[in-house]
Design a protein around this nucleic acid. Structure first.
Length: 490
RNA sequence: CGGGGUGUAGCGCAGUCCGGUUAGCGUACCUGGUUUGGGACCAGGUGGUCGCAGGUUCGAAUCCUGCCACCCCGACCA
């Protein structure tokens, strides 16, 4: 069999890039750092959107839309926020083109300079809070629970398709609350939504944690995150939820009257996940034969490949398969029947494996005689011949099993690659091999920076569920009460 | 933004050092036939501004200059 993509062990990043191309997920565009998401890739993103959006609605949020352009002056209102984003903002300076005098094409019309330059949103806190100022007067207007699905632009130096692109798609939730406690509860609640989505839909185990001040979102008092481990042992931040305190309320003067008629600033949160999740999904499960998708997010859950010699045989098979397809669809299973004669069965098998279709049925005349079908699962690459009767239930169970099984496999991989280390020497040795290192840290930025400088590992998070444990910092020897998660990260 | 590499048909590549007929191979695609339970075979055919823009030359994929894109490694970041 011809090898479609490089293996993970040969060259992990090339494997990742080739997989994305060959599985028809996305491609690079004419603009540096921007990607074209192809129909197959986009339909996975749509499934993610649907699941997340339902969860946002269940927790009381509504969708809205805020503009792409932000007046430059807005960005300078919250000091640490500007500092965090200033270096990666795209700026609109003109609003008109004209034909070049020498006929060489169009040029920017120098006459058409904008009074105030516009920033292409890197995130929408500033426009949204300037709007919330008008929406919020009293405690009766709170909580305000809004989400938007949109694109944002961050002018990154070095891009990688899905993981870090100059333009990406995401959702950003922005909420306002009467009390700090309520805002903090919201921050935690949305982190839990993300964690549940990652585990139940993406079949990707995550660590829930808090960021250190160094790694925190610019403008937040606290950033919570979910961190996942990729198959090369590197960490990937898959979602963040921020407690904004009153920072943006103060910057944009968003105040409300309390029940006892006092004027107070509101408390804010923001939270987001992006098309980066596509990268996470790919790197969490896929193998050297291509994509491996969890059934819950697979655009096609079952593909049926007929094996035939002529039109008459195909017609016979189709007669048998059509009712099966109807039954599968009735059971809520998405199914594709590939009856084209452009390619041989073997070609189709390889192609659907590349695209990560969880279950494949193959059916030929032999099966027709025996009332059987060959059923293959993508994750384990095993196949068996089963009876045609009761097939829908069998497939239903199989899909559930695949969903659970790839989660279990990812969890197993993570525990195999998570290590408690107690000395800096051990730390430096282990970090070269990848994985998560659980180590004591003295809580200072200096230590964090020094370790990053020397080992390229960062503190991914301070785990929320981690148990208290007396120890000493691996770097400074100072006392510590809890282990934190170190790793090299995407 | 620094260091290295690559850009030639949809995809993967040879040719570039040392300039010279009509730019080649594999694959994909089209037509016909034989095939079809793990990426089929035979025959014929379509498809190229050789990344872009200048320059040198009788002549440029090949030499020179500038630019662009992508990949790998750094700095920065989700």
């Amino acid at each position: 069999m011809a090898k479609a993509i490089p293996s993970r062990s040969e060259n992990y990043s090339e494997w990742y890039n080739e997989l994305i191309k060959k599985a028809d997920l996305a491609e690079n565009s004419a603009v540096r750092g921007c990607m074209v998401i192809k129909p197959y890739g986009f339909s996975i993103w749509e499934k993610m959107q649907r699941a997340l959006d339902d969860m946002f609605k269940e927790t009381g949020h509504s969708n809205a839309y805020f503009p792409l352009f932000i007046p430059k002056s807005y960005l300078s209102k919250e000091a640490s926020h500007v500092e965090g984003f200033a270096k990666e903002c795209a700026v609109v300076t003109h609003y008109r083109l004209k034909n070049a005098e020498d006929g060489s094409g169009v040029v920017v019309d120098p006459e058409a300079r904008l009074e105030e330059e516009l920033i292409v949103r890197p995130t929408s806190e500033t426009v949204i809070w300037s709007t919330y100022k008008n929406w919020i007067q009293s405690y009766r207007d709170l909580p305000l629970l809004i989400n938007q699905w949109c694109n944002v632009v961050r002018w990154e130096m070095r891009t990688r398709i899905f993981l870090r692109t100059a333009e990406f798609l995401w959702q950003e939730g922005h909420t306002a609350h009467a009390t700090a406690e309520e805002a903090m509860d919201e921050t935690k609640q949305m982190l839990e939504v993300y964690a549940r989505f990652a585990e139940e839909w993406m079949a990707m185990p995550v660590i829930r944690g808090a960021k250190t001040p160094n790694e925190r979102f610019a403008g937040a008092d606290e950033t919570l995150c979910i961190e996942a481990m990729m198959q090369d042992g590197k960490a990937l931040q898959a979602g963040t939820s921020h407690f904004l305190g009153q920072n943006f309320a103060k910057a944009f003067d968003v105040r409300f009257l309390t029940k006892d008629n006092q004027l107070d600033y509101v408390w804010g949160t923001s939270w987001g996940v992006s098309t980066r999740l596509m990268g996470a999904l790919i790197m969490a499960h896929s193998d050297d034969d291509g994509l491996v998708l969890p059934p819950k997010l697979a655009p096609i859950q079952v593909v049926i490949v007929p094996i035939f010699r002529n039109d008459e045989q195909l017609a016979q098979l189709t007669d048998k398969i059509k009712p099966l397809m109807q039954d599968l669809r009735k059971a809520g299973i998405s199914v594709k029947y590939d009856n084209s004669d452009a390619n041989k069965p073997g070609w189709k098998f390889a192609e659907y494996e590349l695209r990560g279709v969880p279950v494949r049925l193959a059916m030929g005349l032999r099966d027709l005689e025996n009332n059987t079908v060959e059923i293959a699962r993508r994750d384990l690459k095993t196949k068996e011949t089963v009876s045609f009767d009761g097939l829908v239930d069998h497939i239903k169970n199989l899909l559930d099993d695949i969903q659970k099984s790839i989660y279990a496999r990812a969890l197993e991989f993570r525990s195999q690659n998570t290590f408690k280390v107690d000395t800096y020497r051990e730390f430096k040795e282990q970090i070269e091999k990848g994985g998560f290192l659980l180590a004591h840290w003295d809580g200072t930025s200096e230590t964090e920076e020094a370790i990053k400088e020397e080992t390229k590992a960062t503190i991914r998070c301070i785990p929320l569920q981690g148990e208290e444990e007396e120890g000493t910092c691996i770097y400074s020897g100072k006392p510590s009460k809890k282990r934190v998660v170190f790793a090299r990260a995407y």
